[in-house]
Design a protein around this nucleic acid. Sequence first.
DNA 1: TTTCTAATGTACGAACTGGTACGTTAGTTA
DNA 2: TAACTAACGTACCAGTTCGTACATTAGAAA
Lengths: 211, 211
Amino acid sequence: MRAETGERRRDAERTRTELLDVATDEFADRGYSGARVDEIAARTRTTKRMIYYYFGGKEQLYLAVLERAYSEIRAAERTADVDHLDPTAAVRRLAEVTFDHHEAHPAFIKLVGVENAQQAKHMNHVARLVDLNSSAVDLLAGVLARGVADGLFRDDVDALDVHMMISSFCFFRVANRHTWGALFDRDLLAPDRREHYRTMLGDLVTGYLRK
Amino acid sequence: MRAETGERRRDAERTRTELLDVATDEFADRGYSGARVDEIAARTRTTKRMIYYYFGGKEQLYLAVLERAYSEIRAAERTADVDHLDPTAAVRRLAEVTFDHHEAHPAFIKLVGVENAQQAKHMNHVARLVDLNSSAVDLLAGVLARGVADGLFRDDVDALDVHMMISSFCFFRVANRHTWGALFDRDLLAPDRREHYRTMLGDLVTGYLRK
DNA sequence: TTTCTAATGTACGAACTGGTACGTTAGTTA
DNA sequence: TAACTAACGTACCAGTTCGTACATTAGAAA
Protein backbone atom coordinates (compact mmCIF):
# COMPACT_ATOMS: atom_id res chain seq x y z
CA MET A 1 0.00 0.00 0.00
CA ARG A 2 2.60 2.43 1.21
CA ALA A 3 4.97 1.62 -1.56
CA GLU A 4 4.00 4.05 -4.32
CA THR A 5 6.82 6.48 -3.62
CA GLY A 6 9.13 3.78 -2.37
CA GLU A 7 10.21 6.00 0.48
CA ARG A 8 9.48 5.23 4.08
CA ARG A 9 9.36 8.20 6.36
CA ARG A 10 8.63 8.13 10.06
CA ASP A 11 6.02 10.53 11.31
CA ALA A 12 4.18 9.59 14.45
CA GLU A 13 1.64 12.38 14.18
CA ARG A 14 0.80 11.66 10.60
CA THR A 15 0.39 7.95 11.28
CA ARG A 16 -1.88 8.65 14.25
CA THR A 17 -4.00 11.11 12.30
CA GLU A 18 -4.29 8.83 9.33
CA LEU A 19 -5.47 5.99 11.54
CA LEU A 20 -8.05 8.27 13.14
CA ASP A 21 -9.31 9.49 9.78
CA VAL A 22 -9.79 6.03 8.37
CA ALA A 23 -11.18 4.66 11.62
CA THR A 24 -13.76 7.44 11.73
CA ASP A 25 -15.19 6.36 8.41
CA GLU A 26 -14.97 2.68 9.19
CA PHE A 27 -16.74 2.98 12.55
CA ALA A 28 -19.31 5.36 11.12
CA ASP A 29 -20.08 3.06 8.20
CA ARG A 30 -20.04 -0.30 9.93
CA GLY A 31 -20.66 0.38 13.59
CA TYR A 32 -18.42 -0.64 16.45
CA SER A 33 -18.64 -4.40 16.09
CA GLY A 34 -18.92 -4.23 12.32
CA ALA A 35 -15.69 -2.28 11.96
CA ARG A 36 -12.58 -4.38 11.33
CA VAL A 37 -9.17 -3.40 12.61
CA ASP A 38 -7.52 -5.22 9.74
CA GLU A 39 -9.64 -3.25 7.32
CA ILE A 40 -8.78 0.06 8.97
CA ALA A 41 -5.09 -0.72 8.83
CA ALA A 42 -5.28 -1.84 5.21
CA ARG A 43 -6.71 1.52 4.21
CA THR A 44 -3.81 3.44 5.70
CA ARG A 45 -0.17 3.59 4.74
CA THR A 46 0.73 1.82 7.96
CA THR A 47 -0.06 -1.52 9.57
CA LYS A 48 -2.42 -2.92 12.17
CA ARG A 49 0.41 -3.03 14.63
CA MET A 50 0.29 0.77 14.86
CA ILE A 51 -3.30 0.73 16.08
CA TYR A 52 -2.09 -1.17 19.10
CA TYR A 53 1.04 0.90 19.38
CA TYR A 54 -0.75 4.27 19.39
CA PHE A 55 -4.15 3.49 20.81
CA GLY A 56 -3.96 0.19 22.63
CA GLY A 57 -6.77 -1.59 20.84
CA LYS A 58 -9.99 -1.39 18.92
CA GLU A 59 -12.01 0.06 21.77
CA GLN A 60 -9.55 2.82 22.61
CA LEU A 61 -9.31 3.68 18.93
CA TYR A 62 -13.07 4.05 18.81
CA LEU A 63 -12.94 6.25 21.90
CA ALA A 64 -10.33 8.47 20.28
CA VAL A 65 -12.47 8.73 17.14
CA LEU A 66 -15.48 9.72 19.18
CA GLU A 67 -13.65 12.35 21.16
CA ARG A 68 -12.08 13.96 18.14
CA ALA A 69 -15.36 14.00 16.24
CA TYR A 70 -17.18 15.79 19.03
CA SER A 71 -14.32 18.21 19.57
CA GLU A 72 -14.27 19.26 15.94
CA ILE A 73 -17.96 19.95 16.16
CA ARG A 74 -17.61 22.46 18.93
CA ALA A 75 -15.53 24.80 16.84
CA ALA A 76 -18.15 24.82 14.09
CA GLU A 77 -20.98 25.53 16.48
CA ARG A 78 -19.26 28.69 17.61
CA THR A 79 -19.15 30.30 14.21
CA ALA A 80 -22.73 31.51 14.59
CA ASP A 81 -22.67 35.24 15.21
CA VAL A 82 -26.20 36.17 16.18
CA ASP A 83 -25.92 39.08 18.59
CA HIS A 84 -26.58 41.64 15.91
CA LEU A 85 -29.75 39.90 14.69
CA ASP A 86 -33.23 40.39 16.05
CA PRO A 87 -34.41 37.39 18.12
CA THR A 88 -36.51 35.80 15.39
CA ALA A 89 -33.78 36.05 12.79
CA ALA A 90 -31.24 34.86 15.34
CA VAL A 91 -33.19 31.70 16.13
CA ARG A 92 -33.57 31.02 12.45
CA ARG A 93 -29.85 31.53 12.03
CA LEU A 94 -28.98 29.09 14.80
CA ALA A 95 -31.29 26.49 13.33
CA GLU A 96 -29.61 26.94 9.97
CA VAL A 97 -26.16 26.50 11.45
CA THR A 98 -27.23 23.19 12.94
CA PHE A 99 -28.90 22.25 9.69
CA ASP A 100 -25.79 22.96 7.65
CA HIS A 101 -23.59 21.28 10.16
CA HIS A 102 -25.53 18.02 10.11
CA GLU A 103 -25.53 17.95 6.38
CA ALA A 104 -21.81 18.58 6.18
CA HIS A 105 -20.81 15.89 8.67
CA PRO A 106 -22.57 12.64 7.88
CA ALA A 107 -19.84 10.59 9.52
CA PHE A 108 -20.41 12.43 12.77
CA ILE A 109 -24.14 11.77 12.58
CA LYS A 110 -23.51 8.11 11.99
CA LEU A 111 -21.22 7.97 15.00
CA VAL A 112 -23.96 9.46 17.14
CA GLY A 113 -26.20 6.66 15.93
CA VAL A 114 -23.56 4.05 16.64
CA GLU A 115 -23.05 5.43 20.10
CA ASN A 116 -26.76 5.42 20.89
CA ALA A 117 -26.99 1.85 19.66
CA GLN A 118 -24.59 1.04 22.49
CA GLN A 119 -26.46 3.11 25.06
CA ALA A 120 -23.72 5.74 24.91
CA LYS A 121 -21.58 3.56 27.13
CA HIS A 122 -18.39 4.73 25.50
CA MET A 123 -19.31 8.38 25.60
CA ASN A 124 -19.68 8.26 29.33
CA HIS A 125 -15.98 7.47 29.50
CA VAL A 126 -15.14 10.70 27.73
CA ALA A 127 -16.20 13.08 30.48
CA ARG A 128 -14.62 15.97 28.62
CA LEU A 129 -17.40 15.90 26.08
CA VAL A 130 -20.11 16.94 28.47
CA ASP A 131 -19.31 20.64 28.71
CA LEU A 132 -18.40 20.95 25.05
CA ASN A 133 -21.96 20.73 23.86
CA SER A 134 -23.45 23.14 26.33
CA SER A 135 -22.13 26.18 24.48
CA ALA A 136 -24.60 25.83 21.63
CA VAL A 137 -27.47 25.68 24.09
CA ASP A 138 -26.20 28.67 26.06
CA LEU A 139 -26.14 30.71 22.87
CA LEU A 140 -29.71 29.71 22.14
CA ALA A 141 -30.82 30.47 25.68
CA GLY A 142 -29.50 34.00 25.33
CA VAL A 143 -31.46 34.61 22.16
CA LEU A 144 -34.62 33.20 23.66
CA ALA A 145 -34.28 35.50 26.65
CA ARG A 146 -33.97 38.46 24.33
CA GLY A 147 -37.06 37.37 22.44
CA VAL A 148 -39.05 37.05 25.64
CA ALA A 149 -37.86 40.45 26.86
CA ASP A 150 -38.95 42.00 23.57
CA GLY A 151 -42.37 40.44 23.98
CA LEU A 152 -41.90 38.39 20.80
CA PHE A 153 -41.56 34.88 22.20
CA ARG A 154 -43.54 32.72 24.56
CA ASP A 155 -41.99 32.86 27.99
CA ASP A 156 -42.51 29.22 28.89
CA VAL A 157 -40.03 27.56 26.56
CA ASP A 158 -36.83 25.85 27.57
CA ALA A 159 -33.72 26.35 25.43
CA LEU A 160 -32.75 22.69 25.62
CA ASP A 161 -36.18 21.70 24.33
CA VAL A 162 -35.81 24.04 21.38
CA HIS A 163 -32.36 22.67 20.73
CA MET A 164 -33.82 19.17 20.71
CA MET A 165 -36.51 20.26 18.29
CA ILE A 166 -33.90 21.59 15.91
CA SER A 167 -31.54 18.66 16.35
CA SER A 168 -34.22 16.06 15.81
CA PHE A 169 -35.24 17.54 12.48
CA CYS A 170 -31.67 17.86 11.24
CA PHE A 171 -30.59 14.51 12.59
CA PHE A 172 -33.51 12.62 11.13
CA ARG A 173 -33.06 14.08 7.70
CA VAL A 174 -29.50 12.83 7.52
CA ALA A 175 -29.60 9.67 9.62
CA ASN A 176 -32.82 8.18 8.29
CA ARG A 177 -32.57 9.16 4.69
CA HIS A 178 -32.14 5.55 3.58
CA THR A 179 -35.25 4.02 5.11
CA TRP A 180 -37.20 7.15 4.20
CA GLY A 181 -36.05 6.86 0.65
CA ALA A 182 -36.95 3.19 0.50
CA LEU A 183 -40.39 3.66 2.04
CA PHE A 184 -41.50 6.90 0.44
CA ASP A 185 -39.21 7.22 -2.52
CA ARG A 186 -38.09 10.68 -1.49
CA ASP A 187 -34.45 11.65 -1.09
CA LEU A 188 -34.27 13.90 1.95
CA LEU A 189 -30.82 15.08 0.91
CA ALA A 190 -31.64 15.94 -2.68
CA PRO A 191 -29.91 19.27 -3.40
CA ASP A 192 -32.99 20.81 -4.97
CA ARG A 193 -35.01 20.25 -1.83
CA ARG A 194 -32.36 21.54 0.52
CA GLU A 195 -33.61 25.12 0.68
CA HIS A 196 -37.13 23.88 1.18
CA TYR A 197 -36.20 21.91 4.30
CA ARG A 198 -33.97 24.64 5.62
CA THR A 199 -36.78 27.15 5.40
CA MET A 200 -39.24 24.67 6.79
CA LEU A 201 -37.13 24.19 9.89
CA GLY A 202 -36.90 27.93 10.45
CA ASP A 203 -40.66 28.33 10.04
CA LEU A 204 -41.23 25.46 12.40
CA VAL A 205 -39.11 26.83 15.21
CA THR A 206 -40.05 30.49 14.96
CA GLY A 207 -43.70 29.50 14.62
CA TYR A 208 -43.48 27.55 17.82
CA LEU A 209 -41.82 30.38 19.71
CA ARG A 210 -44.11 33.20 18.51
CA LYS A 211 -46.44 34.50 21.15
CA MET B 1 -32.50 -24.56 28.71
CA ARG B 2 -35.67 -26.26 27.64
CA ALA B 3 -35.36 -28.88 30.31
CA GLU B 4 -37.32 -27.35 33.20
CA THR B 5 -40.45 -29.34 32.53
CA GLY B 6 -38.59 -32.27 31.09
CA GLU B 7 -41.12 -32.57 28.31
CA ARG B 8 -40.24 -31.99 24.71
CA ARG B 9 -43.11 -30.99 22.50
CA ARG B 10 -42.91 -30.26 18.83
CA ASP B 11 -44.47 -27.06 17.61
CA ALA B 12 -43.10 -25.54 14.46
CA GLU B 13 -45.03 -22.30 14.81
CA ARG B 14 -43.99 -21.72 18.39
CA THR B 15 -40.35 -22.41 17.62
CA ARG B 16 -40.42 -20.01 14.68
CA THR B 17 -42.11 -17.28 16.68
CA GLU B 18 -39.79 -17.70 19.60
CA LEU B 19 -36.78 -17.37 17.34
CA LEU B 20 -38.22 -14.23 15.79
CA ASP B 21 -38.97 -12.70 19.17
CA VAL B 22 -35.50 -13.25 20.54
CA ALA B 23 -33.85 -12.29 17.26
CA THR B 24 -35.76 -9.00 17.21
CA ASP B 25 -34.26 -7.98 20.53
CA GLU B 26 -30.81 -9.25 19.67
CA PHE B 27 -30.64 -7.43 16.33
CA ALA B 28 -32.16 -4.28 17.83
CA ASP B 29 -29.67 -4.25 20.69
CA ARG B 30 -26.50 -5.26 18.90
CA GLY B 31 -27.04 -4.40 15.26
CA TYR B 32 -26.77 -6.82 12.38
CA SER B 33 -23.10 -7.71 12.67
CA GLY B 34 -23.13 -7.42 16.45
CA ALA B 35 -25.91 -9.96 16.81
CA ARG B 36 -24.80 -13.54 17.37
CA VAL B 37 -26.75 -16.51 16.08
CA ASP B 38 -25.42 -18.63 18.92
CA GLU B 39 -26.67 -16.06 21.40
CA ILE B 40 -30.11 -15.92 19.79
CA ALA B 41 -30.40 -19.69 19.90
CA ALA B 42 -29.21 -19.87 23.49
CA ARG B 43 -32.00 -17.55 24.58
CA THR B 44 -34.70 -19.75 23.11
CA ARG B 45 -35.88 -23.23 24.03
CA THR B 46 -34.50 -24.54 20.78
CA THR B 47 -31.10 -24.71 19.11
CA LYS B 48 -29.11 -22.86 16.51
CA ARG B 49 -29.88 -25.58 14.02
CA MET B 50 -33.47 -24.37 13.88
CA ILE B 51 -32.44 -20.93 12.67
CA TYR B 52 -31.03 -22.58 9.60
CA TYR B 53 -33.93 -24.99 9.37
CA TYR B 54 -36.62 -22.31 9.42
CA PHE B 55 -34.93 -19.25 8.00
CA GLY B 56 -31.87 -20.36 6.13
CA GLY B 57 -29.30 -18.19 7.85
CA LYS B 58 -28.53 -15.05 9.83
CA GLU B 59 -29.39 -12.69 7.02
CA GLN B 60 -32.76 -14.23 6.23
CA LEU B 61 -33.59 -14.26 9.92
CA TYR B 62 -32.85 -10.55 10.06
CA LEU B 63 -35.04 -9.99 7.02
CA ALA B 64 -37.89 -11.87 8.68
CA VAL B 65 -37.46 -9.79 11.83
CA LEU B 66 -37.57 -6.58 9.83
CA GLU B 67 -40.64 -7.56 7.87
CA ARG B 68 -42.58 -8.63 10.92
CA ALA B 69 -41.63 -5.48 12.84
CA TYR B 70 -42.87 -3.19 10.07
CA SER B 71 -46.01 -5.24 9.56
CA GLU B 72 -46.98 -5.00 13.21
CA ILE B 73 -46.59 -1.27 13.00
CA ARG B 74 -49.12 -0.84 10.27
CA ALA B 75 -51.92 -2.21 12.39
CA ALA B 76 -51.16 0.28 15.16
CA GLU B 77 -51.06 3.23 12.79
CA ARG B 78 -54.60 2.48 11.69
CA THR B 79 -56.15 2.81 15.11
CA ALA B 80 -56.26 6.59 14.78
CA ASP B 81 -59.86 7.60 14.21
CA VAL B 82 -59.74 11.25 13.27
CA ASP B 83 -62.63 11.84 10.90
CA HIS B 84 -64.87 13.19 13.62
CA LEU B 85 -62.28 15.70 14.85
CA ASP B 86 -61.74 19.20 13.51
CA PRO B 87 -58.56 19.48 11.42
CA THR B 88 -56.40 21.00 14.14
CA ALA B 89 -57.41 18.42 16.72
CA ALA B 90 -57.03 15.68 14.14
CA VAL B 91 -53.46 16.66 13.32
CA ARG B 92 -52.66 16.78 17.00
CA ARG B 93 -54.21 13.35 17.38
CA LEU B 94 -52.15 11.86 14.57
CA ALA B 95 -48.98 13.30 16.04
CA GLU B 96 -49.86 11.78 19.39
CA VAL B 97 -50.45 8.37 17.88
CA THR B 98 -46.98 8.47 16.35
CA PHE B 99 -45.54 9.76 19.59
CA ASP B 100 -47.10 6.95 21.62
CA HIS B 101 -46.15 4.40 19.07
CA HIS B 102 -42.49 5.31 19.09
CA GLU B 103 -42.37 5.25 22.84
CA ALA B 104 -44.06 1.87 23.01
CA HIS B 105 -41.80 0.18 20.47
CA PRO B 106 -38.16 0.91 21.23
CA ALA B 107 -37.01 -2.29 19.54
CA PHE B 108 -38.63 -1.16 16.31
CA ILE B 109 -36.93 2.21 16.54
CA LYS B 110 -33.59 0.53 17.04
CA LEU B 111 -34.19 -1.66 14.01
CA VAL B 112 -34.84 1.44 11.92
CA GLY B 113 -31.49 2.75 13.11
CA VAL B 114 -29.77 -0.53 12.33
CA GLU B 115 -31.28 -0.56 8.88
CA ASN B 116 -30.19 3.00 8.14
CA ALA B 117 -26.70 2.15 9.31
CA GLN B 118 -26.66 -0.33 6.45
CA GLN B 119 -28.12 2.08 3.92
CA ALA B 120 -31.42 0.22 4.09
CA LYS B 121 -29.99 -2.42 1.83
CA HIS B 122 -32.01 -5.16 3.45
CA MET B 123 -35.24 -3.22 3.41
CA ASN B 124 -35.09 -2.86 -0.32
CA HIS B 125 -35.41 -6.62 -0.52
CA VAL B 126 -38.72 -6.52 1.27
CA ALA B 127 -40.73 -4.77 -1.40
CA ARG B 128 -43.92 -5.51 0.46
CA LEU B 129 -42.99 -2.88 3.04
CA VAL B 130 -43.23 0.04 0.70
CA ASP B 131 -46.99 0.33 0.46
CA LEU B 132 -47.48 -0.48 4.13
CA ASN B 133 -46.26 2.85 5.34
CA SER B 134 -48.15 4.99 2.91
CA SER B 135 -51.44 4.58 4.78
CA ALA B 136 -50.34 6.81 7.65
CA VAL B 137 -49.41 9.55 5.23
CA ASP B 138 -52.65 9.23 3.29
CA LEU B 139 -54.60 9.70 6.51
CA LEU B 140 -52.60 12.82 7.26
CA ALA B 141 -53.04 14.16 3.73
CA GLY B 142 -56.81 13.92 4.12
CA VAL B 143 -56.79 15.91 7.32
CA LEU B 144 -54.56 18.57 5.83
CA ALA B 145 -56.89 18.94 2.86
CA ARG B 146 -59.80 19.47 5.23
CA GLY B 147 -57.82 22.09 7.11
CA VAL B 148 -57.00 23.95 3.94
CA ALA B 149 -60.60 23.79 2.78
CA ASP B 150 -61.74 25.24 6.09
CA GLY B 151 -59.26 28.07 5.70
CA LEU B 152 -57.39 26.99 8.83
CA PHE B 153 -54.16 25.67 7.36
CA ARG B 154 -51.52 26.96 5.00
CA ASP B 155 -52.13 25.56 1.56
CA ASP B 156 -48.50 25.04 0.63
CA VAL B 157 -47.62 22.14 2.90
CA ASP B 158 -46.91 18.61 1.85
CA ALA B 159 -48.25 15.74 3.95
CA LEU B 160 -45.03 13.78 3.71
CA ASP B 161 -43.09 16.77 5.03
CA VAL B 162 -45.41 17.03 8.00
CA HIS B 163 -45.08 13.33 8.59
CA MET B 164 -41.32 13.73 8.59
CA MET B 165 -41.56 16.59 11.05
CA ILE B 166 -43.57 14.42 13.42
CA SER B 167 -41.45 11.33 12.92
CA SER B 168 -38.18 13.14 13.46
CA PHE B 169 -39.27 14.51 16.81
CA CYS B 170 -40.59 11.15 18.02
CA PHE B 171 -37.70 9.17 16.62
CA PHE B 172 -35.03 11.41 18.07
CA ARG B 173 -36.53 11.36 21.52
CA VAL B 174 -36.37 7.57 21.65
CA ALA B 175 -33.33 6.80 19.51
CA ASN B 176 -30.96 9.43 20.86
CA ARG B 177 -31.92 9.44 24.47
CA HIS B 178 -28.59 7.97 25.51
CA THR B 179 -26.24 10.53 24.01
CA TRP B 180 -28.66 13.28 24.96
CA GLY B 181 -28.70 12.07 28.53
CA ALA B 182 -24.93 11.84 28.61
CA LEU B 183 -24.39 15.30 27.12
CA PHE B 184 -27.16 17.30 28.76
CA ASP B 185 -28.09 15.16 31.72
CA ARG B 186 -31.72 15.08 30.70
CA ASP B 187 -33.72 11.89 30.31
CA LEU B 188 -35.95 12.41 27.28
CA LEU B 189 -38.06 9.42 28.30
CA ALA B 190 -38.62 10.41 31.91
CA PRO B 191 -42.30 9.70 32.65
CA ASP B 192 -42.86 13.07 34.27
CA ARG B 193 -41.78 14.90 31.13
CA ARG B 194 -43.81 12.75 28.78
CA GLU B 195 -46.88 14.98 28.71
CA HIS B 196 -44.68 18.00 28.20
CA TYR B 197 -43.09 16.58 25.05
CA ARG B 198 -46.36 15.23 23.77
CA THR B 199 -47.96 18.66 24.04
CA MET B 200 -44.89 20.32 22.63
CA LEU B 201 -45.07 18.18 19.51
CA GLY B 202 -48.72 19.05 19.00
CA ASP B 203 -48.03 22.76 19.44
CA LEU B 204 -45.14 22.52 17.05
CA VAL B 205 -47.07 20.91 14.23
CA THR B 206 -50.30 22.85 14.55
CA GLY B 207 -48.31 26.07 14.91
CA TYR B 208 -46.52 25.33 11.66
CA LEU B 209 -49.74 24.59 9.80
CA ARG B 210 -51.75 27.54 11.05
CA LYS B 211 -52.37 30.19 8.44
C1' DT C 1 30.42 7.47 13.56
C1' DT C 2 28.27 5.04 17.00
C1' DT C 3 24.54 4.36 20.05
C1' DC C 4 20.02 4.34 21.36
C1' DT C 5 15.12 4.44 21.11
C1' DA C 6 10.77 5.62 19.00
C1' DA C 7 8.50 3.90 15.24
C1' DT C 8 7.43 0.29 12.19
C1' DG C 9 6.81 -4.38 9.95
C1' DT C 10 5.97 -9.61 9.90
C1' DA C 11 4.22 -13.71 11.24
C1' DC C 12 1.35 -16.17 13.97
C1' DG C 13 -1.98 -17.82 17.57
C1' DA C 14 -6.23 -18.34 20.27
C1' DA C 15 -10.88 -17.50 20.47
C1' DC C 16 -14.89 -16.67 18.17
C1' DT C 17 -18.57 -17.37 14.80
C1' DG C 18 -21.49 -18.65 10.99
C1' DG C 19 -22.61 -22.61 8.97
C1' DT C 20 -23.18 -27.80 8.16
C1' DA C 21 -23.02 -33.07 8.30
C1' DC C 22 -25.22 -36.39 10.39
C1' DG C 23 -27.90 -38.70 13.76
C1' DT C 24 -32.29 -38.90 16.63
C1' DT C 25 -37.19 -38.55 17.96
C1' DA C 26 -42.18 -37.10 18.10
C1' DG C 27 -46.18 -37.68 16.05
C1' DT C 28 -48.92 -38.82 11.92
C1' DT C 29 -50.70 -42.09 8.57
C1' DA C 30 -51.66 -46.49 6.44
C1' DT D 1 -47.96 -51.32 14.88
C1' DA D 2 -44.89 -50.36 11.21
C1' DA D 3 -43.36 -46.95 8.22
C1' DC D 4 -42.48 -42.36 7.31
C1' DT D 5 -41.38 -37.49 7.70
C1' DA D 6 -41.21 -33.01 9.91
C1' DA D 7 -38.89 -31.32 13.71
C1' DC D 8 -35.08 -31.26 16.48
C1' DG D 9 -30.18 -32.04 18.70
C1' DT D 10 -25.00 -32.72 18.70
C1' DA D 11 -20.64 -32.27 17.24
C1' DC D 12 -17.69 -30.23 14.44
C1' DC D 13 -15.34 -27.44 10.72
C1' DA D 14 -13.45 -23.59 8.22
C1' DG D 15 -12.87 -18.91 7.95
C1' DT D 16 -12.44 -14.76 10.39
C1' DT D 17 -10.73 -11.42 13.69
C1' DC D 18 -8.52 -9.29 17.58
C1' DG D 19 -4.41 -9.24 19.56
C1' DT D 20 0.77 -10.14 20.36
C1' DA D 21 5.69 -11.87 20.19
C1' DC D 22 9.51 -10.71 17.98
C1' DA D 23 12.44 -8.68 14.53
C1' DT D 24 13.86 -4.43 12.11
C1' DT D 25 14.92 0.37 10.88
C1' DA D 26 14.92 5.60 10.68
C1' DG D 27 16.64 9.25 12.69
C1' DA D 28 18.08 11.78 16.86
C1' DA D 29 21.67 12.24 20.38
C1' DA D 30 26.31 11.67 21.97
